[in-house]
Nucleic acid binder design. Structure first.
Lengths: 224, 224
DNA sequence: AATCTTTTTCGTACAGCGTACGAAAAAGTT
DNA sequence: AACTTTTTCGTACGCTGTACGAAAAAGATT
């Protein structure tokens, strides 16, 4: 080690738009979206701020780019497979991608120009629903419903002060203590009888809603 | 008019935490979250930046505060009413609040300390579900599902480049032109046969998903 | 009315942000 | 070796949140 281990060695790598975006994702994953500044990104790539502007027009383009990069990680559903399985798998894939990159959820709200990976993803999903027999209208309804649920779940998950199995207790217990016998009896009830139970993971709630939705959609497909 | 009509008259008003937050909401509504800076907020109140810090500790507290203010606009569901009607009304209320204040959706992801109005809202919703006969576990499932859907829908709505009835065409038509006979046939299909139809409003999709979800929950309540 | 105390305002300053501009350096071509 | 193109980046500007301490205003007490 030449540098006295103050930070991750900024290994100098030949630049490119692709690499800028990949490093941006990495940096956001490690340190959060707020830490993703042009200067810090440049430093993590072993270069200087203004050098990046040869590959991206501005920061907006970086944000658009990393959102599309997240979508590119998600496998495309197949119109040939059974739609229920494909939609369930897709839902899980999208959720886990948004779990790996929690900052992406907050970015979705402000990105209005989808990238190519995003467009391909939408196209493949629509194709699968249409092939399943849904009408054009029904496909629009179903897609809006599914994505609303997935994004909303990811949004709530990103806002949680804890993450994963058995990690809620540390945060929740003192709050419950504070509220007990107070003005929030039902929140305390949910906390003590559900959240604080061993093995609790908010992520487990995902399948409940997903199955209910897919069930409802399946019902509508059968009885037109 | 003394000042030559350059901006909205910054009517000097006696300060208070309450008023700071209210003005912050107003400013974010009018000019977007990015325009909500300490300096611009101060100017809109006819005072100077540092004066605000006597009422709020920092900007984070302002963001927490305005999110809670949005929740305070939403009527509380009643545990006495029929749960289905109450939950439907609540869903619509939350959605329209997030439509009035689109910036709030993006803020939800980063706020981990809910304010009093938010807590009261959660408490009342949980109470209604429990009173309807849902078990503790089922209430947790139902709440996560409903809020995921509502937030996710609001998120997608906020990301749309158009808003309201018959406004999609202007934005969508040129894109369809660009893509037609191209690699996105199903997106074009949805656009031409659904989105571009007169009277289209993405907001109308909300009820489809909401009814499907409430239907599914009702079914689970009856057959335990 | 004068003095003292507390509350409220805000001028100045600083580090960090995105990025415009143009020069310097490097790489590629002839 | 000379010229051209591509790539790097030093400097500077206006913006951000906010630390610090002084100034001003308001209230209290004598």
């Amino acid at each position: 080690m030449s540098t006295p281990a103050q930070e991750r060695a900024p290994k100098r790598v030949s630049l490119s738009r692709e690499r800028v975006l990949r490093c941006a994702v990495e940096l956001a994953d490690e340190s959060g979206l707020a830490a993703l500044t042009i200067r810090s990104l440049a430093q993590s790539m072993g270069t200087k701020a203004m050098s990046l502007y040869h590959y991206v027009a501005n920061k907006e383009e970086i944000l658009d780019g990393i959102v599309d990069l997240v979508f590119s990680e998600i496998g495309l559903p197949s119109a040939e497979g059974d739609w229920l399985g494909e939609m369930r798998r897709r839902a899980h894939d999208v959720r886990s991608a948004l779990q790996r990159h929690p900052w992406a959820v907050g970015l979705l709200e402000s990105r209005t120009s989808p990238g190519p990976a995003t467009l391909h993803h939408h196209e493949a999903t629509l194709a699968t629903l249409r092939a399943a027999g849904f009408s054009v209208q029904m496909t629009a309804h179903a897609y809006a419903l599914l994505d609303s649920y997935i994004y909303g779940f990811a949004l709530q998950e990103a806002a949680l002060p804890f993450k994963g199995r058995d990690t809620a207790a540390e945060v929740t217990a003192p709050i419950v203590q504070l509220f007990s016998t107070g003005q929030y009896p039902h929140m305390v009830e949910i906390a003590t009888e559900h959240v604080l139970k061993p093995g609790y993971d908010f992520g487990d709630e995902f399948d409940f809603g997903l199955d209910l939705i897919l069930d409802g959609l399946g019902r509508l497909l059968e009885t037109p």
